[in-house]
Every structure is written in structure tokens, then in C-alpha cells.
């Protein structure tokens, strides 16, 4: 998400040269912690603020206000030669938890399944664990199978999916290229199955998508309010599309 925040800040210089915006990375937790400490005006986060973080902020005299600024679809990807083109959420969960180990069990070729995942420190990993592997159920304790390859970068996942017909991976829609195959995801075996796209994410049909947030300390005023207002406009949302994220509807 830091790429998006940087791109916005950069473009905003052309709109309002008199407003200086400094962006630093470090993960959603770092951003929200800085907001609680009062060192930043806006915290970008790819997850919603936790209850304990709100408590901490209130204890510090800060009332965080949430804005959804863009959305991000997580695409499930396989090698182009893989005959499978759609899976249910339950099937994907069973693949990653290690219940399914051969593509044959899903109607594919007789090949072992090689599971690829982002590293555990990635927000995408946590989101995928909660939404897909644990099917969004709070009391579900399913784990990624210990055989799951944890790759440190999107490029690592891309390289392996492109060349290995056994592999299945997931990543932000912005990282998916033409030389891999995106899996359509459905909730039941009867379908319907949906491919991730701006339309299916915004209509709510493609469910493996998350909101990206900005948090401000209290209701924003002055330049911060103007900036957030600009971010919701078409010009800023076009950047969202350019970077492979899903723009929010006006």
C-alpha cells in the first residue's frame, strides 16, 4: 500500500504545490502506532484498526477516524497449463491446509500440489489466512500446511507460478501478469465463480478482496481534509487503477 500512498503524495504535489506530504513505509501496524503517538497526520493501513489500538489511541487523547480509500483484490494464480480454472473457497482452504495434496483430487492432472504463500510478516498473508484458509470464521484454527513455501517477494511467487505446473499461489491483483492463470473463485460447488476484476470486486461478487484505509486523528480539517477529499476524486482513483488496485466507487 506504500506504493499507492507514495504515488498519491507525488501527484498531489502538482495539484497543491504548497502542501508537503512525507510518506514512510513500515507496515500497517507501524502506521497506526505512529498515529496513536501523534507523530503522523494520516496513517495508511491495509487492515482495519484493531479494538485495542482504538483504546490506546483514546487513552492518548486521539480519536481515529476511518476512510476507505481503495480496495485490493487477492488473486489465486496457477501455471497457464493447469486445466483447473475455478475453485470454491473451501477447496482453496483445503489445498492450503494440506487436506488436498494432488491436483487429481480437484479434477486436474496427476501432479502434486505445491503451495506458495507470502511471508508471515506480509499483510496479504494474514488476510489470506483469515479470509480464505480459515474461511472468515473467527473460531476456525486451520493453519497453512507446514509444506507451504513462504516466499519473501511477489516476484518469487510469480517466478515459481510461471514455470511450475504444480504450483498454486496468491497475490495482489496488481502483481498478476498475462503469463499466469487466474482462478475464478466461488462460494459453492455449483457456482457462480468469479474472476477478480474491478467490477466483480466492487459488486461484491469476488469475495477475496479487502479495503485499504487511511486513518486520521479526529475529524480531519484544513489541508488533511482537502487531501482526503482529493483522494476520493476520479484523478486520484485513476492512480489506484494504474497500480493494479481496485478504485472505490464514487
Amino acid at each position: 500500500m506504500v506504493n499507492l500512498a507514495l504515488a498519491w503524495a507525488e501527484r498531489y504535489q502538482d495539484v497543491r504545490p504548497d502542501v508537503a506530504i512525507a510518506v514512510t513505509g513500515g507496515g500497517s501496524g507501524t502506521g497506526i502506532a505512529s498515529l496513536i503517538n501523534g507523530t503522523v497526520s494520516v496513517a495508511n493501513a491495509s487492515r482495519s484498526i484493531k479494538a485495542e489500538e482504538i483504546e490506546n489511541a483514546r487513552a492518548n487523547g486521539i480519536d481515529p477516524v476511518e476512510f476507505v480509500v481503495a480496495r485490493d483484490a487477492i488473486a489465486v494464480i496457477v501455471h497457464p497449463s493447469n486445466p483447473i480454472d475455478h475453485l470454491t473457497l473451501q477447496q482453496i482452504s483445503d489445498i492450503y491446509s494440506g487436506k488436498l495434496t494432488n491436483w487429481q483430487e480437484l479434477g486436474g492432472e496427476d501432479r502434486p500440489i505445491v503451495r506458495l504463500s507470502r511471508e508471515t510478516n506480509s499483510g496479504t498473508h494474514v488476510y489470506f489466512l483469515e479470509t480464505v484458509v480459515r474461511l472468515g470464521q473467527k473460531d476456525n484454527n486451520t493453519f497453512f500446511s507446514a509444506d507451504t513455501l513462504l516466499l519473501p517477494s511477489s516476484e518469487g511467487i510469480g517466478a515459481e507460478v510461471r514455470q511450475n505446473p504444480n504450483a498454486i499461489g496468491y497475490d495482489g491483483l496488481g502483481y498478476v501478469t498475462d503469463d499466469m492463470k487466474t482462478i475464478a473463485v466461488g462460494l459453492t460447488a455449483e457456482g457462480p465463480f468469479w474472476l477478480p476484476s474491478i467490477e466483480t470486486v466492487n459488486s461484491g461478487d469476488y469475495t477475496v478482496a479487502r479495503d485499504l484505509y487511511m486513518y486520521t486523528a479526529g475529524v480531519p480539517t484544513d489541508s488533511v481534509a482537502e487531501y482526503l477529499d482529493w483522494i476520493h476524486r476520479a484523478e486520484a482513483q485513476a492512480i489506484v487503477r494504474e497500480l493494479g488496485f481496485v478504485p472505490i466507487q464514487e
Binding site: 511471508e119 507446514a146 509444506d147 507451504t148 513455501l149 513462504l150 516466499l151 519473501p152 518469487g156
Partner: peptide
């Protein structure tokens, strides 16, 4: 090693 060993913590 981080790039080529797959990083799966399996025994």
C-alpha cells in the same frame, strides 16, 4: 538460501 530453499518451516 532465502530465494531458493522455499522457506517452508517443515522438519
Amino acid at each position: 538460501v532465502m530465494m531458493v530453499t522455499g522457506n517452508a518451516p517443515r522438519l
